[in-house]
Design a binder for these strands. Structure first.
Lengths: 155, 155
DNA sequence: TGGTATAACATGGTATTTTATGGGAATCAA
DNA sequence: TTGATTCCCATAAAATACCATGTTATACCA
């Protein structure tokens, strides 16, 4: 039994005329391992699609039920938006999912999808938008290096 | 039953035409012991590849989850940079991993890889860049000897 | 201590498997 | 029927496992 389930790496796959895309094999492995499904929804903050395992959404739902103060009212509203928008995606025998028009349009994806790992979640970008976003992030880091607890101290 | 483990030493191995390199056997031993995997990503600050165990990243993911909330902007940026760039590497029966073009290019590695232990992490440099870097570090120490709380003694 | 046998390792090459992706047939719904 | 979705097959490319060899390090013995 594996202990770690992280969506990692950045993978570029093609979207064909029918709207089909290969889900990266690493991602597929996670879904199989957890015997769950992939869920996607429009990102609330960026022009991209966001995805995670259905497991995670269940956990989120459970958290909301059990605690009142952990999630602010705003976050509760956001959560509603996500649940309302989220759709389950299963992949066929060759590992492809079929994204909806709504999602593709929101992410401005036409023929190329960039899968970006985010640990428990992942994102799907158009090539153009991701290029810009990555640049923005690296600039930001240059000016203000974040301290990651688990990473310890170098230098 | 966590045995202590540290990535140590400096080891020079060849990179073949396919990008394959032998992971130092000491490193392999650690991976086996913890039954985890190696994860590599581009260093944010230096022209080198950085690596650690997937365990460590998993811990980081947990930290990020607990310290910020589901929709936080800081979490968003951080996770994109860290997990989006990191890639899992497993080694074959002869102990080799296959580094990607992206990583090799960032570290300016062509045919020789220098593994440098950093405790919980390690780095992979090109021979030229590591020579320079080591010199720089030793110069820096000479001019401004750091005070180590643990009372370290360098000859 | 010196010398040899043995094991571990790095590394080149090759074979096998996995994966991405295009196209078409079958299925289903409006 | 028509348009869309699912399923299946084919193929090329990429990743991975496997085998072989020379070299280095380690263990062993006189």
């Amino acid at each position: 039994m594996r202990k770690t389930f992280l969506f990692l790496d950045t993978i570029i796959n093609k979207v064909d005329a029918k709207g089909r895309v290969s889900l990266p094999s690493d991602y597929r492995a996670i879904v199989k391992e957890l015997s769950t499904e992939i869920v996607c929804y429009r990102s609330l903050t960026s022009p991209c699609i966001e995805g995670c395992t259905e497991d995670l959404l269940e956990k989120l739902a459970a958290d909301i039920e059990s605690s009142t103060d952990f999630f602010s009212e705003t976050q509760d509203d956001l959560t509603n938006l996500v649940f309302g928008d989220a759709k389950r995606f299963s992949f066929d025998s060759t590992g492809r999912i079929m994204l909806t028009e709504k999602l593709l349009k929101h992410a401005e994806i036409t023929d190329t999808a960039v899968f970006v790992g985010k640990g428990r979640k992942f994102q799907i970008w158009s090539l153009e938008n991701w290029t810009k976003e990555e640049q923005r992030l690296r600039e930001k880091i240059k000016n203000n290096r974040p301290s990651l607890k688990a990473e310890g101290n170098n230098d």
